[in-house]
Amino acid sequence: MTALINEQGLRHDGRRIEDLRPIKIEVGILKNANGSAYIEFGKNKIIAAVYGPKEVHPKHMALPDRAVLRCRYHMSPFSTDTRKNPAPSRREIEISKVVREALEPAIMINDYPRTAIDVFLEVLQSDGGSRCAGINAASVALADAGINMRDLVSACAAGKVGGQVVLDLDDTEDKEGQADVPVAIMPNFDQVTLFQLDGILTQEEFKKAFGFALGGCRKLYQLQKEALMKKYFGHGEPIVEENE
């Protein structure tokens, strides 16, 4: 078996400890959804779709002063090496909850009383760090849907592998490593919306991991911004004529 980190300080896939995997984000890939995005985060391939704001059914679930945000994180049966049962697992239900809680502070839900906003995350291929990848895609899809947001939400994980703190763990590192720290932030407000820690870290390691994750989130924000700019504006200049 290859060492998780070799003598040159490179990880099993050739990355340095503070490197992200290759990332690609596309906006507006689904015609039928109000907003959508596709993200490739290393070998993760995830589609995010946003529907709403729309009427709530059943009606008694509607809130009089704000929108109901509903998230569904789902892994396709073909997303893993052995077939995954398509029924929602304990893990998927938990990730749906943490994704919802990571996105909720950024969405101005009070602007849409008595409505529902549905966010669907479909993992087509998974390779560790899919909750962070999903949050990035969902946040861009929400902006694409034209829902009022305080900020985008950018997410990235750090962790401890082979005794060293590293950025952006893949599936092998996640399974073999000692700790995983997924973090999501609202970059323009410097606020954390998701923070989890699975494993054991010393205080020093924790500080370093958290710093790595924040750095990763900021890089993700730039990619999200570029993806939205590309979809909506290409590379053109703002128009100068009055439009009303």
Partner: peptide
């Protein structure tokens, strides 16, 4: 003043606004 939408921001004498490009 932060934008809440994807769109075109205008800052003038009247104030600040963003003309959105998508949304319900």
């Amino acid at each position: 003043f932060y934008s809440t939408r994807v769109g075109m921001a205008e800052v003038g004498h009247e104030g600040v606004r963003v003309i959105p490009l998508s949304g319900p």
